[in-house]
């Protein structure tokens, strides 16, 4: 298969005396659909924070697209091609939906282009998400799924090589989960590498080509969805025995 787009090598993160990540090593290949699972508090979001640059890892290295990310600010990483969503959606609440998308477009993917072009770009992304008719609405009136979709749409507007989706499906109904999964598959087919963090096993197993499982900050399993689903360690981590 293709070469590694992201190499996480012995990444460690401590909060005071508490070790949230302990020497995590893994690779994500270009074009891959990659699943990241683990029980609550196992360090999934912390790993994403270290990759996206909102936290600095205390040990180990992260290489993206051949470039060491050490000391690189989050916005530079976004420009380099890594964009993440937030587990709890963080819309720009004083802006309309389309203006939310215009921020990454204006600052990253369509930097220097005319406002009308940026608006067209944002509109076409909203269309693929089925949110075009909401473009000029405020974010305050959005439903749970719309908020999740906006969070994804805004990240996609940055045109990332690697999209990291942190629990984009939490709180959604079965149909909505399928809808969001399909959206992510569509973007993957256009060449976007995607890391999906998810508690909804059905979705993450259906989506991913490869899955890793974290437990208490340690990587305990890595493999295809089939292998992971049969893994005794993963089962134990989730059942808490």
């Amino acid at each position: 298969m293709a070469e590694a787009l992201l190499k996480v090598d012995s990444v460690t993160k401590n909060f005071g005396g508490f070790t949230a990540l302990s020497e995590v090593t893994t690779e994500v290949k270009a074009g891959e659909r990659f699943g990241l699972i683990g029980p609550n508090g196992s360090g999934k979001t912390t790993l994403i924070n270290c990759i996206s640059g909102t936290l600095t890892n205390d040990g180990g290295s992260i290489i993206f697209d051949g470039q060491d990310l050490q000391g690189m600010k989050a916005h530079v990483r976004t420009a380099a091609g890594i964009t993440r969503t937030f587990q709890i959606p963080r819309p720009f609440h004083s802006m309309t939906i389309i203006d939310n998308l215009k921020i990454p477009l204006e600052f990253v993917s369509a930097s220097g282009r005319a406002q009308t072009e940026i608006r067209d770009e944002a509109m076409s992304i909203l269309e693929t998400m089925g949110m075009a008719e909401k473009a000029d609405e405020e974010t305050s009136g959005l439903t749970q799924i719309e908020l999740r979709k906006l969070e994804l749409a805004r990240a996609i507007a940055a045109k990332p090589k690697l999209l990291i989706s942190d629990e984009a499906m939490a709180g959604l109904t079965g149909n909505e989960v399928d809808e969001v999964t399909q959206i992510l598959i569509n973007f993957n087919e256009q060449g976007m590498t995607i890391i999906m963090i998810e508690h909804i096993m059905r979705a993450v197993m259906q989506f991913s080509q490869r899955v890793i499982c974290l437990d208490a900050g340690q990587l305990i399993a890595e493999g295809t969805p089939d292998i992971i689903q049969k893994d005794k360690g993963v089962e134990r981590a989730y059942l808490g025995v």
Binding site: T54, K73, A74, R90, P91, F92, S94, M95, I103, R154
Partner: peptide, 25 residues
């Protein structure tokens, strides 16, 4: 202008702004 829109994003949510490519500092 771009500066104003970036500042607005910072006001709304600074970490999200940074992750969306806004050079917040």
């Amino acid at each position: 202008g771009k500066l104003g829109r970036g500042l607005n994003a910072i006001k709304d949510n600074e970490e999200a702004a940074e992750c969306m490519g806004v050079p917040t500092l």
